[in-house]
Design a binder for these strands. Sequence first.
DNA 1: CGAGGTGTGTGAAGATTGCATATAGATGCG
DNA 2: CGCATCTATATGCAATCTTCACACACCTCG
Lengths: 126, 126
Amino acid sequence: MSDDRVNRNEDGQPKNFLRAWLLLLLTESPAHGYDLVERLDAIGVGRDAGSLYRALRGLEHEGLVASAWEASLIGPDRRRYVVTERGQERLRAWVGLLEGVQASLDAFLARCRSAVDEHGDGIARH
Amino acid sequence: MSDDRVNRNEDGQPKNFLRAWLLLLLTESPAHGYDLVERLDAIGVGRDAGSLYRALRGLEHEGLVASAWEASLIGPDRRRYVVTERGQERLRAWVGLLEGVQASLDAFLARCRSAVDEHGDGIARH
DNA sequence: CGAGGTGTGTGAAGATTGCATATAGATGCG
DNA sequence: CGCATCTATATGCAATCTTCACACACCTCG
């Protein structure tokens, strides 16, 4: 009882954002998972390698990317991913959706500022 | 259609966006759930009343909003919600998070357009 | 050999969401 | 009255998403 441990996942990131980023990065240039881990880490999305590999396999299962094993000069073999035609289309669809989300988000934040102004401490005009 | 059950939830909305909107709308003016359903429907967030009531109870459980029963002139009693001090703080925190998401999203979309440009055939639509 | 970097992957737990459904008071109409 | 409908709140369930923790394998270097 009285479990104050709420521990809610409040990062607010869009759903499937990782997938969208993967399609984008692979569109920019084909790569293998470990490379994408590092590229995404620099961007600040998807802090977990496991999620990334799982997402890649999911994308492949949907036919949005394709992979082939490739030998590495400095380590074990790796899976090299490329985006398919369907993947390109899906990315474009995602862009449309995310533009809508962007609009929502802008509306939310703008409205938030208005609300804060009106209930703020002294900034109120009039 | 086929046996390929992909059926992914790809709306791309930020997680807990409904909660954030509820805090904002309640900051603008206290209200009861049914009213919020209609306000949010106009905005285009949270198309489900059940989720909304569940979210409200969740917010209350966290002490971010408070409620009291109120008689209605035209229907059954309703629960009137107001935002608490903690709720205000949480909303401000959410604004900070969502500004980060906004930046991410802008970066993603900008980078997407660059990628599409470089691959030429992408822009031509119908 | 053993440690550590490279590279890919799964299991399980927790949280969120949407759909369907339940309950109940109030109102209007034949 | 009986019944549909609007108002109002709430729960059950399944699908999905995300993260944590861990497992497995290859390769190089000391």
